[in-house]
Amino acid sequence: MYTHFVRFQMLQSRRKYDGEYAPDVSWDKDAILSLGKLAFHQLQRNNLLFYDKDLEECGIDKSKASVYSGMCTQIFKEEAGIILGTTFCFVHLSIQEFVAALYAHLFLDIHKKSVFNQHESTEQENKNGTMIDLLKTAVDKALESETGHLDLFLRFLLGLSLQSNRLLLPGLLTQQYSNEQSNRKIVQYIKEKLEDKKMSPERSINLFYCLNELNDQTLVKEIQTHLREGSLSSSDLSPAQWSAVAFVLLTSEEELEEFELQKFKKSDECLFRLMEVLKISKRALLNDCNLTDESCSNLAKALWSDNSLIELNMSDNNLQDSGVKQLCIGLENIMCKLEILKLRGCKMTDEGCSALTSALKSNPSHLRELDLSENKLGDSGVENCHGTGYGRNTKRG
């Protein structure tokens, strides 16, 4: 889709500025190299806006910037401001990511080396000048990013590595690669990465989108079978398989009103792998699931991010005060819009209750129901909870 979009804009530009009305358009390699270099290097720095000096570094003369923006009328634009001066940007971040990926392939095609190794020695260039090396490095760089700013770039890069998609770029990419072999190697490399227990749920989900770009559905189809058979709660799945579960649920057309962990596996690890699913659900039923303070830390991060949760049930888990304190980090954030919080039988004492009271006073606008029954609360703990306005729902254990 993005390839057709760029070609269409170039065709329209030729008609508008050069008077060419040919039914097709040849690729302007120099323009793609200049714009691509700008897109790639600014994307690496996670920059959406760039300036005159950035254009000059990529061989784009400021006086000709309008020509480049005119050549791709809906791809590149400039704006004049009083404070920052003239700034430039791509009309949408995804356009920048696509052009950067296209540049990476063109750079490899012309120079026989990876854009990630432009300044390496000749010996290192020869070592890192293959398609598979480019793709592996891109996977590693995307996984290193805490913000995920290279995620979509990686998807575009992998999609453009398929011969079927390269056929859409006649006259631009000429080098032929052993596509089937490279495809098999990078698929295996991504699947190995998915087994990393320390990988964040966000990065693992992106890797499944990457496998989609490479037309590999093996893990997803395997999980779809488990879902149809209803055997997930009794299955001993690997981290990659649990991530596949999350991907299948996230890409389902059905709206997730309720996430019940007991339907999957009662463990901290399983909850961590399915955290992205929890975040788009309205009700999270995590009661009696053998959860510890480890899950509370991950839940706090979820509550700090964009989420749909209005009910969280953590009852009958061994959270103790340490877990409740971790959870409070998320509860006090303005992104948290919980209306119902259930922490019955979590082995909390007055210490945890005090932290909870402080968090609820920091963010008091949404919560309307709180259950702290069957915890080890003394008089001071009960008094604190009454001070939050939710005392009517609090019972002493």
Rank of each mutant, 00 (worst) to 15 (best):
F5G: 04
V6S: 01
Q12F: 05
R14C: 03
Y17N: 08
Y21A: 06
D30G: 06
S34E: 11
K37H: 14
F40L: 06
F40C: 02
L43T: 07
L43R: 00
Q44W: 06
Y51R: 08
G59S: 08
S63A: 14
K64M: 14
V67Y: 10
G70P: 15
I75C: 07
F76P: 09
I82P: 01
I83V: 06
I83C: 04
G85A: 03
F90K: 00
H92I: 14
L93K: 14
I95V: 13
A100I: 02
Y103I: 05
F107Y: 15
I110V: 09
Q118A: 14
Q118C: 13
S121M: 02
T122Y: 12
L135K: 00
D140G: 02
E146H: 13
G148I: 12
L150D: 05
F153I: 03
L154D: 08
S161E: 07
Q163D: 12
L172K: 02
Q181Y: 15
E192G: 10
E195M: 06
K198R: 13
R203G: 11
R203Y: 14
L207G: 01
F208T: 06
L211Q: 02
L214Q: 00
L227Y: 09
L227F: 12
S234C: 11
P239K: 01
A246D: 02
V248N: 00
L249D: 04
E255Y: 13
L256S: 11
L256N: 11
F259L: 00
Q262M: 12
K266V: 13
E269Q: 13
V277L: 02
K279L: 04
L285A: 06
N287F: 01
D293L: 04
A300D: 04
N307P: 08
L309C: 13
E311H: 05
E311W: 11
M314I: 09
D316A: 05
D316Q: 04
N317Q: 01
D321E: 12
G323V: 07
Q326V: 15
Q326W: 15
K342Q: 12
R344F: 09
M348K: 02
G352M: 11
L360D: 07
L360W: 13
K361T: 14
C385Y: 11
R392D: 11
N393D: 09
K395I: 13
